[in-house]
């Protein structure tokens, strides 16, 4: 007892167990739910789900969404949001379609155009959000409106692209080695994926590495976790946010081209509602809108989970259009409640 004005403070706290981080915990939940759902579908619904091609078709259908969702996850991890990606996809489709068919463009020029749209979008939206500090929701809402209007200004009607080299690329199928099934005639049909899937998988792997092992990736998490702290720790918060939004827009343009490659047409109604699908996939994949928590692998399985549930609904014979939407909504609801309960309980401990 040396000091007269001493402070009364807590005793030494014992070291705590290293628990699961929030990110990993949510990833595990997502993986578990996806597996349970898929296995249940294989066991109970049989036929269709047993074919490997069913799985690969899900990939073919959703390659673009996977890419969009990855971009969305990155923005969400930094604590932002981007609701312009859906209509951007439509804009990219329409621009590429017009370029290929009306302006005798090549595939290279179309890809160039798509990327240019992404880069421009990224620069403008990123600058306004990060350096002028305007709420991302409003900025990307304007971006969404802009792309929507621009699409019809470029061309108001839907049309299919006739360009031959594009058609060849669109129809390119890559067989999956060792996978396949026997069709009704008794012939062996190998399972295949489209080019877009390869792009999507490469992007998922690259982004996974980026988020886990690069300084920039960890800065995304830090900024999302606590912006002020990240600044005090010496992270350039504005640049980090700018890069997140820039990356998201560029990914949206790549996703837009992959979508274009899958559908082969331009239309103002393409990819409508994709921004919300991307957000839903990210959430199911364990990314939190509050920032700082999320995982690209989770996002990938988030997209696949959504797709699986839609397939299950249609193979149950519930054909009316509304069932699919209602089940998807129910699933988002379920996930949110699981996440909120798990995290609340964990934090209480």
């Amino acid at each position: 007892m040396a000091r007269s004005n001493s402070t009364v403070k807590g005793e030494r706290l014992k070291p705590q167990r290293t628990g699961l981080s929030d990110t990993n915990l949510l990833l595990i939940i997502t993986l578990a739910v996806f597996l349970v759902m898929y296995v249940a579908a294989v066991v109970f619904l049989g036929s269709g789900f047993r074919k490997p091609q069913t799985f690969f078709n899900m990939l073919n259908e959703n390659a673009a969404l996977i890419i969009l969702s990855c971009g969305m996850s990155i923005v969400m991890i930094t604590g932002g949001i981007d609701i312009s990606v859906g209509t951007m996809t439509a804009l990219v489709c329409m621009t590429c379609a017009v370029n290929l068919d009306y302006q005798s463009g090549t595939i290279a020029s179309a890809i160039g155009l798509a990327l240019m749209i992404g880069v421009l979008y990224g620069l403008v939206q990123g600058y306004i959000i990060a350096y002028l500090e305007i709420q991302p929701f409003i900025v990307t809402l304007a971006g969404m409106f802009f792309a929507k209007g621009m699409t019809t200004i470029v061309n108001a009607d839907q049309f299919n692209v006739a360009n031959e080299s594009f058609q060849a690329l669109k129809l390119t199928r890559i067989n999956v080695p060792g996978m396949g099934s026997v069709n009704k005639l008794g012939n062996y049909v190998p399972a295949y994926v489209e080019i877009g899937v390869i792009v999507a998988v490469v992007i998922v792997v690259l982004l996974f590495v980026l988020l886990r092992w690069s300084k920039l990736g960890r800065n995304f998490y830090a900024v999302g976790g606590n912006q002020q702290s990240a600044n005090m720790l010496g992270i350039n918060v504005k640049r980090t946010k700018f890069l997140a939004h820039f990356l998201c827009s560029v990914l949206a343009s790549i996703g837009g081209f992959v979508y274009f490659l899958h559908v082969g047409s331009g239309s103002p109604s393409h990819a409508s509602g994709y921004e919300m699908n991307a957000i839903a996939s990210s959430i199911i994949g364990g990314t939190m809108l509050t920032g700082g928590v999320g995982n690209i692998l989770g996002t990938f399985f988030g997209v696949m989970s959504l797709s699986t549930i839609k397939n299950i609904v249609s193979s149950l014979g519930l054909d009316e259009a509304w069932w699919s939407n209602i089940t998807v909504a129910a699933m988002i609801c379920l996930f949110l409640v699981i996440q909120s309960v798990v995290l609340l309980r964990k934090n209480k401990k």
Binding site: S21, R218, Y221, A222, G225, A230, I235, G292, V293
Partner: peptide, 19 residues
Amino acid sequence: EITLCPNLTVAENMFIART
């Protein structure tokens, strides 16, 4: 006030933005 990121690990908080 504590200016670290609660969602990162202890080690990351010690080394982020330093290398």
